[in-house]
Design a protein around this nucleic acid. Structure first.
Length: 924
DNA sequence: GTCATCACG
DNA sequence: GACGTACGTGATGACC
């Protein structure tokens, strides 16, 4: 019977499946020969899950549709189409044909056509199915396909298990499916590099289309548009918009050499399917499918199980969680914790800031799916004007719960597992509970996969558990009407909070064993985990900041800025917003007609500091703007903003360090960032005068001298550099002397400055262009310097080449302490290639330096650690009683200079400089 | 939410 | 042969 009424066609977007499978799973290779098969494995799992989910349904026809070839008719129209796409990762490429084989093995039709995107084939088939009177479901979340919805065609987002019908499309695009291409043509698409109309997004596009009915009507009547900006944009970019429409319009008339009837659902042939799965060496999947089909699983040689196979556990979505409301209930959980020997812990609080947020509840999980939530401070209702909301019923006393849990949380024999434990540990510390020992899934992920993805719980859960956690926004809302967690009803809080603990425990079970397999156990145990209590203590300690000093500076800055602003307006001959780069660009280049043209894809003039500096010779205005910008930065980011970060209880500023933020192993400081307090300019440096010691104390700052260059000299093994460091010589002068054949005693500051720039350039993966820009010299001359440098220090060139080659071979680079930094882009083609290479060259150097100071912080003796306030990458700042300064410097310097022992012995000495004073400006 | 700008190592 | 380029971060204000 020919396809028609009563039939239901499923079209699966194969490429989407592949990419999701690839990115969702850690790299997995076939044991016997190392062939990458992670994406194939994920793809097969997704197909199987699809089949399971549809058995007994009404699907009569199905096909998986793939892209073929990268050049399509759209590239003929517009050569930049999809031009900004990254190249396919090297380890994915060989898996593409295997996914076709997999589809065939599952006995599902598999279609593609040279010169057409999968979307066009899907469009053609969907239209055919609709015209024949049948139904069609497109399994994809690609918004380009939304134009097909309606008349029996719908989409299914398999990830979210969400059906997208006409209403769904309207929600997304603000127009019906038949006008989706019009909106897309206006809004453009940065992913596919469809230009659209500059400055118009989906919202505005939908507004316009709804007003004028269609894109054509809109463009014809563009003169009528009231907003001058929009009117000009539409008129000026008409042809670009029309091109965009042709690019996003799917071709529903692809000539196909098969018909819908060829896509009829077929039962899998067990032998063929199992043979393929066995050949891929997917042990768990082979067995599962064999059981399902009632066939015998083929034997796969070589017994160890592949790492992609997750342990069996109940599905998160099926789990039910308990609310603990009294001491008896809690005692049962404490007994369970002792039975298991470990527990995943998560705290719920009234805010994100662990210094000010209050505890609202605690969740625990002892085994996958076996979790509870203990509400402690939930309230009901809005509360009256005095804010006294009523305490919700059915909660145990907070003090009592904490008292009962304290012995567990402090018990040496019970491992406490958390996701970002520093947060929870700091909350508990405020209730006088010292949580220990701990494991942290965020840090485990970071040790395993730095550079591959971020390490937040939502990302990890989706990637490794295939589960999207309940969004916190669904409980709290967002924006102005956002509430705090204590206002959430307990019955809503329990599934959310307990799920977090459940997910954390599952992630721990999955990821912890991989530390050993990836040989990063030592990194995790010596460089990541022990940092948690150290940073928690520093953050809680905080640094004293003098509000009056900042306030005075703010006022002084405001006055100066007002003066400058008047001068600038005078010079410009009109008033404008100095802070707007856009307006400034128009003044400089259109009105004053200074030289230096457009830049950037947005079409706006570039007005960065380097450009303004060049312009300063032409006109007085740019220099004034530079001065104004400096003051504006200092005022808004520092003297104003810092005051708001002074904690009213402590009178101090408590930054938060993220351990897993920077790929290289460096820490990052946020809320506020205390790692970028000004120092380079005289005016800015004065802000450091506001960072003070309590009376009777002194601030002491100790920093590693030239640590990255020393590490480079060691890693690249450069005898001349190593000797210079051993002899305590001026390394930049030495470099200059070697390169330019100038004796040290005849060195001029300018030659030394150039050598210094080269030394730093080397650490960053030097390029002629970059050095030329930095030194403001012709590119050829810069390249000459670099050539001479490599001639003189051939080991540096060798190090760079070897490092890049290592990254290409392994997909990561390493620090001397074994930290791995993944380099997934290293084999990319195009402009990304240079980036990835330089990052790979820099990472071992920057990362080793980061490891060294981490070791120093971790090993800092307890009495020193108590006084430690801040870390700024190569510097530690302490607040010390006046009479202990000398002793502190001696001890801390010793710890810092020997921090690499005994793991790594450097061929060069590490040298630490120290300073002290009543404030940070003096101490530095 | 994104971009441009600028603060630090 | 052209392309776009120093490495790593976070905060702010303007603008959509």
């Amino acid at each position: 019977m020919a396809f028609g009424k009563g039939h239901h066609l499923h079209l699966i977007d194969g490429s989407a499946f592949i990419f999701r499978a690839y990115h969702a799973l850690p790299p997995l290779t076939r044991k016997s020969d190392g062939l990458p098969v992670g994406a194939v494995s994920g793809f097969c799992n997704m197909l199987q899950r699809y089949i399971d989910g549809n058995s007994g349904g009404d699907v009569t026809h199905v096909a998986v549709i793939f892209d073929k070839g990268s050049h399509t008719f759209r590239n003929e129209m517009f050569d930049q189409y999809k031009a900004n796409r990254d190249a396919m990762p090297e380890d994915l490429r060989p898996q593409i044909p295997l996914t076709r084989e997999a589809t065939a093995a599952f006995n599902i039709a598999c279609e593609e056509k040279e010169g057409f995107e999968a979307d066009d084939i899907i469009a053609t088939l969907a239209v055919q199915a609709r015209d024949a009177g049948g139904r069609c479901t497109i399994i994809s979340s690609d918004k380009d396909l939304m134009q097909l919805v309606g008349g029996g065609v719908e989409m299914l987002d398999a990830m979210k298990n969400k059906v997208i019908d006409v209403e769904g499309v309207e929600e997304k695009f603000g127009v019906g499916p038949n006008r989706v291409v019009d909106v897309q043509a206006l809004a453009g698409d940065s992913v596919d590099n469809v230009p659209g109309a500059p400055g118009i997004g989906i919202k505005t596009a939908a507004l316009l289309i709804n007003e004028y009915g269609s894109l054509e009507e809109l463009l014809d009547r563009a003169e009528e548009i009231k907003q001058p900006k929009r009117r000009e944009t539409l008129i000026e970019h008409r042809s670009q918009i029309e091109l965009s429409k042709r690019l996003v319009q799917l071709d529903a008339e692809v000539p196909l050499d098969f018909t819908l009837d060829d896509l009829e659902v077929r039962e899998p042939e067990p032998e063929k399917l199992l043979e393929f799965l066995a050949e891929m060496e997917f042990r768990t999947l082979t067995k599962r499918i064999a059981d399902k089909l009632g066939a015998e699983a083929p034997v796969i040689e070589d017994t160890p199980a592949p790492e992609a196979d997750a342990p069996e556990m109940p599905e998160i979505k099926d789990a039910t969680y308990e609310t603990v409301r009294d001491a008896d209930g809690l005692q049962k959980w404490i007994d369970l914790i002792y039975e298991h020997g470990h527990v995943a812990v998560d705290t719920e609080t009234t805010g994100l800031n662990d210094m000010t947020a209050d505890l609202v509840g605690i969740s625990l999980c002892v085994n996958a799916g076996h979790a509870c939530y203990i509400p402690l401070a939930h309230v009901t209702g809005e509360g009256d004007l005095l804010g006294a909301a009523e305490r919700a019923e059915g909660q145990m006393d907070l003090e009592q719960a904490v008292a009962m849990l304290k012995p567990v949380l402090q018990d040496d024999s019970i491992l406490k597992i958390g996701q970002n434990m520093k947060y929870d540990a700091k909350i508990f510390a405020r209730y006088d509970v010292d949580v220990s020992p701990i494991d942290d899934t965020m840090l485990i992920s970071y040790a395993l996969h730095a550079g591959l993805h971020n390490h937040g719980m939502d990302a990890l859960s989706e990637r490794y558990l295939g589960h999207t956690p309940i969004p916190i926004k669904s409980l709290l809302g967002s924006g102005k009407s956002q509430i705090t967690f204590d206002k959430v009803p307990v019955e809503d809080a329990t599934p959310y909070a307990a799920e977090d603990a459940d997910i954390t425990l599952r992630l721990w079970q999955l990821l912890k064993p991989q530390l050993h397999a990836k040989q990063v156990t030592t990194v995790y145990e010596t460089l990541e985990r022990p940092l948690v209590p150290v940073l928690a203590q520093m953050e809680r300690h905080g640094v004293k900041v003098d509000r009056d000093t900042l306030s005075r500076m703010s006022n002084a800055f405001a006055q100066k800025m007002a003066g400058l602003e008047a001068e600038i307006h005078e010079l410009a001959g009109q008033e404008f917003s100095v802070g707007s780069p856009k307006q400034l660009g128009e003044i400089l280049f259109d009105k004053l007609e200074l030289p230096g043209g457009k830049k950037g894809k947005t079409g706006a003039y570039s007005t960065g500091a380097d450009i303004l500096e060049d312009l300063a010779t032409e006109h007085e205005l740019p220099g004034r703007v530079l001065d104004w910008r400096q003051l504006s930065k200092l005022k808004s980011t520092y003297t104003d903003a810092l005051q708001t970060h002074i904690n009213p209880d402590t009178g101090r500023v408590h930054t938060s360090y993220s351990i897993a933020g920077a790929n290289t192993g460096r820490l990052a400081s946020t809320d506020p960032n205390l790692q970028n307090i000004p120092v380079r300019s005289e005016e800015g440096r004065r802000i450091r005068e506001a960072f003070v010691a309590e009376s009777g104390n002194v601030l002491v700052a100790l920093d590693y001298s030239q640590i990255e260059l020393r590490i480079l000299a060691h890693i690249a093994d450069i005898p001349a550099l190593k000797q210079a460091f051993k002899d305590g010589h001026d390394i930049h002068a030495m470099t200059a002397s070697e390169m330019f054949d100038v004796p040290l005693d005849e060195m001029t500051p300018d030659v030394r400055r150039q050598a210094k720039a080269i030394n730093f350039g080397v650490i960053y993966g030097i390029s002629g262009f970059g050095l030329a820009r930095n030194l403001r010299i012709p590119r050829a001359e810069a390249q000459g310097f670099i050539d001479r440098y490599f001639e003189r220090f051939p080991g540096i060139r060798a190090y760079m080449d070897e490092t890049v080659q290592f990254a290409k071979d392994h997909g990561y680079v390493q620090t001397l302490f074994g930290r791995k930094i993944n380099t997934p882009e290293i084999n990319a083609k195009g402009p990304g290639a240079g980036f990835a290479k330089r990052a790979a060259i820099n990472a071992p150097i920057q990362g080793t330096a980061a490891d060294v100071i981490r070791r120093a912080m971790i090993r800092m003796p307890a009495d020193m650690r108590e006084m430690m306030l801040l870390q700024v990458h190569d510097e530690l700042i302490f607040e010390v009683p006046e009479d202990r300064v000398d002793q502190t410097i001696e001890t801390v310097r010793d710890v810092m200079e020997n921090a690499s022992d005994p793991a790594v012995h450097f061929d060069v000495p590490l040298v630490v400089d120290a300073g002290q004073g009543a404030n940070w400006a003096e101490a530095h």
